[in-house]
Amino acid sequence: MSAITRDEVAHLARLSRLALTNDELDHYATQLDAIIEAVAKVSEVAAVDVPPSSHALPLTNVFRADEVRQCLTPEQALSGAPAVEDDRFRVPRILGEEA
């Protein structure tokens, strides 16, 4: 039995904002199936009572001082933008047709 179906891969591609072709979906479905089967081995470690670690350091909630400091100028911040209008990032429409 496969760990992941082609339809599930299509759903993941949508969630991941990747416009994949049908051929790509077939290809990735096969590969992801093999990878998921391999990574499922994590279940072999008995860890019911073990706390999870998100990272290796004993640090939580690191904040910097709330002080005004130098940052990018508008020109610098916009320097790599695909499209700019009136000192702002110009983006495609973000609302549906019916809106």
């Binding site: 599930e8 991941s16 990574v39």
Partner: peptide, 25 residues
């Protein structure tokens, strides 16, 4: 896509959550 899968509701505990516990071990 693999990461999106491992973080999906329904799979999170079995995959990402368990992997984080293995990290502790």
């Amino acid at each position: 896509m693999l990461g999106t899968y491992a973080l999906s509701s329904g799979y999170y505990d079995a995959y990402y959550g368990q992997a984080q516990k293995v990290r502790t071990v």
